[in-house]
Amino acid sequence: MYGWIWRHLPGPFAVRVLTAVLLIAGVVALLMFVVFPWIEPKLPFNEVTTE
C-alpha cells in the first residue's frame, strides 16, 4: 500500500517527501484532535475501582 501511495505522489523526490510528510502530519492531527477524543469516553479505562 505504501508503494502504491508513493508511486501516485506527483513530482520529483523532494516534492514526494514533502507531500508524504504533510500526509502523515494530517493523519496524525486527525487522529489526535478528532478520533481519539471521540473514542476516549467509550473506553473502559476510566472505570477503575480500588478497595
Score class of each variant (00 low, 15 high):
1 M>E: 03
1 M>D: 03
2 Y>Q: 12
2 Y>P: 03
2 Y>W: 13
2 Y>G: 08
3 G>V: 00
3 G>Y: 00
3 G>N: 06
4 W>G: 03
4 W>S: 11
5 I>A: 12
5 I>S: 03
6 W>M: 14
6 W>E: 12
7 R>V: 04
7 R>N: 15
8 H>E: 10
8 H>Y: 09
9 L>P: 00
9 L>S: 04
10 P>V: 09
10 P>I: 09
11 G>D: 02
11 G>E: 07
11 G>C: 02
12 P>Y: 03
12 P>W: 07
12 P>R: 14
13 F>H: 10
13 F>P: 07
14 A>F: 05
14 A>E: 11
14 A>K: 13
14 A>W: 09
15 V>I: 06
16 R>H: 02
17 V>D: 02
17 V>W: 02
17 V>C: 03
17 V>Q: 01
17 V>Y: 08
18 L>R: 05
19 T>R: 01
19 T>V: 08
19 T>Q: 10
20 A>W: 01
20 A>P: 02
21 V>E: 05
21 V>R: 06
21 V>Y: 00
22 L>G: 06
22 L>N: 01
23 L>R: 00
24 I>C: 06
24 I>N: 06
24 I>Y: 07
24 I>G: 06
24 I>M: 00
25 A>Y: 01
25 A>Q: 12
25 A>F: 03
26 G>W: 00
26 G>R: 01
26 G>Y: 00
26 G>H: 10
26 G>Q: 01
27 V>Y: 07
27 V>Q: 08
28 V>R: 09
28 V>Y: 05
29 A>R: 12
29 A>N: 01
30 L>A: 08
30 L>G: 11
30 L>N: 02
30 L>C: 10
30 L>F: 15
31 L>C: 08
32 M>K: 07
33 F>D: 01
33 F>W: 13
33 F>S: 05
33 F>L: 10
33 F>V: 03
34 V>N: 03
34 V>D: 12
35 V>D: 02
35 V>K: 04
35 V>F: 11
35 V>P: 08
36 F>I: 13
36 F>S: 06
37 P>Y: 05
38 W>R: 02
38 W>T: 08
39 I>L: 12
39 I>S: 01
39 I>V: 15
40 E>T: 10
40 E>I: 05
40 E>H: 05
40 E>M: 08
41 P>E: 12
41 P>M: 06
42 K>L: 14
42 K>F: 10
42 K>R: 15
42 K>Y: 08
42 K>A: 14
42 K>C: 05
43 L>K: 04
43 L>E: 11
43 L>Y: 04
43 L>I: 12
43 L>M: 15
43 L>W: 09
44 P>H: 13
44 P>Q: 13
44 P>G: 15
44 P>S: 14
44 P>E: 11
45 F>N: 09
45 F>Y: 14
45 F>P: 03
45 F>Q: 07
45 F>A: 14
48 V>A: 08
48 V>Q: 11
48 V>W: 12
48 V>F: 06
49 T>V: 13
49 T>M: 09
50 T>F: 14
50 T>V: 15
50 T>C: 10
50 T>Q: 12
51 E>W: 05
51 E>G: 03
51 E>D: 12
